[in-house]
Amino acid sequence: MLQQFGFTQYESKVYQALITVKAPLDASTIVKHSEVPRAKVYEVLQRMSEKGMILESTVQNKRLYTALPLESVIEKLRAKFEENVERLRETKAQKTPLDDRVWSLKDNQSIQVLIKNMIQQATTSITISGWSDDLWQYIPDLEAKEENGVTVAIHSIGTLDTTISSLSTLIPDPQHETLERSRIIITDETEMLFAGMEQTQWHAIQTRSRPLVKFFTEFFYHDVALTEITRKHKDTILADEYIRDVLLKLRY
C-alpha cells in the first residue's frame, strides 16, 4: 500500500492493518492483522510514529495505536512530494555549470531567429546594436520587454522609429570606410551574440563566456560613446583632418 511511496514492506503492512480496523490496536493485535513478526513490530511502530503516520496513546497501562486518517496521509505525501521536487529544482539550479563555450552559427535566418529568441528569454536587460533596416523587426518585442520592466538599450546605424527610451543613432558619413553590417546583442549581462558579414554571408558567434560578454558590452558602449561625441562635436571634429581620418577608419 505505501511501498511505492518509500515505506518498507513492514511499515506498509502495519499501516494497512491499522487503517482497516476502526478501533485502536495494541502491538499483539497489530501482529495478528499485519503478519509482521512480533520481534519487529515495536521497531516498525517506532519508525511509523516518527514519520507521523500513526497516533499513540496509553490506556490502562496498554499502548494503543491508530492510523493517521487516509486523507491526511494523502495530503502529507503530496506536500512531501512537492517539497522534494522544489528541493531538487533548487539543487539543479545551484549546480548548473557555466557553459562558457563559444558557438558559431551561419545562415542569416537562423541568426535572426536566435536573436529573437534571446530577446524573448531576457528577464532583466537587453543591449542590442545593428542597422536600422535590420533592427526594425525586433522593435515590437523590445518595446514589449521595456514595458514589462526589462532595461533595453539600442544603438542603431540609421534612423529607427521606436518608443525605446535608451536609443543611440548613428547617421553614417558617406566617407566612412569601414562601416560594416553587424549585429550585437547582450541579454541579462550573461549571454551575447555577435554577427558580421564575411564574403556576403552572415556568420555569428554566441556564448555565455563572462570575458566575452564583458568585452562586447564595452564594445557596444564604445560605439555609443563615439556616436554621441561625434554628434555633439561634429563641426570641431571634422575640422581636424587627423581626428576625422581616425574616426572614419573605426568600425562604429
Rank of each mutant, 00 (worst) to 15 (best):
K92R: 11
S156P: 13
T217V: 01
Y15L: 15
Q112V: 10
D134G: 11
I19F: 04
A79T: 07
T190F: 00
D245P: 02
Q109G: 01
H33I: 01
T200E: 15
L248H: 07
R78T: 02
G6A: 12
E241Y: 06
V36R: 01
M53N: 03
T187V: 15
D188C: 05
K13Q: 14
N108E: 15
K22D: 12
T127I: 13
H33A: 09
V36K: 00
K51I: 05
A204E: 05
D134Q: 09
W131Y: 13
D235Y: 07
F7D: 02
E228D: 14
N61L: 10
L105D: 07
L45M: 12
G52M: 12
E218G: 08
Q109C: 01
F81K: 03
S49V: 07
L64A: 06
E56F: 05
T187P: 02
P174C: 00
Q9V: 15
R244H: 15
S182M: 09
T190I: 07
E90K: 10
K214C: 00
L250K: 05
H33E: 14
S168H: 03
K76P: 02
R47P: 07
L18W: 03
L226F: 10
I111D: 05
S125Q: 10
I184T: 06
L142G: 08
E228C: 06
K40P: 04
K80C: 04
S49H: 15
V85M: 03
R210Y: 00
S49R: 14
G130W: 00
R47M: 08
V44H: 01
W103E: 12
N108Y: 10
L248G: 12
Y10T: 06
M197F: 01
K92C: 09
Q121W: 04
R208C: 09
A195L: 04
A27E: 06
H176M: 08
L105G: 01
V41Y: 05
T230G: 02
I243F: 09
I119F: 06
K95Q: 12
D133S: 12
L68R: 13
N84K: 04
L77R: 00
Q137F: 08
L250A: 08
H203N: 12
V224T: 06
T151P: 02
L212I: 09
V41N: 02
V152P: 04
Q94S: 15
N84C: 03
D100P: 00
G158D: 01
K249C: 11
Q137D: 15
R87S: 15
G196P: 01
V213E: 00
E82Q: 14
E218K: 10
D245H: 12
E228M: 08
Q3I: 11
V73R: 12
K76I: 02
T151G: 01
L55Q: 13
R47E: 15
R251E: 14
P174W: 03
M192L: 06
I19Q: 10
R181M: 07
K32S: 09
K234S: 09
R47W: 01
G130L: 05
H155Q: 11
Q4C: 02
A79M: 07
I229W: 08
I184F: 01
T227G: 10
P211C: 02
K116L: 12
T169V: 15
V113Y: 14
E241W: 02
S110Y: 11
G130D: 05
H176A: 10
E43T: 11
R101W: 03
S104A: 12
L105R: 10
L238F: 14
T178G: 05
A204D: 07
E198D: 10
A153G: 01
D134N: 10
Q3N: 09
I184L: 14
V246H: 14
T178M: 09
R251I: 04
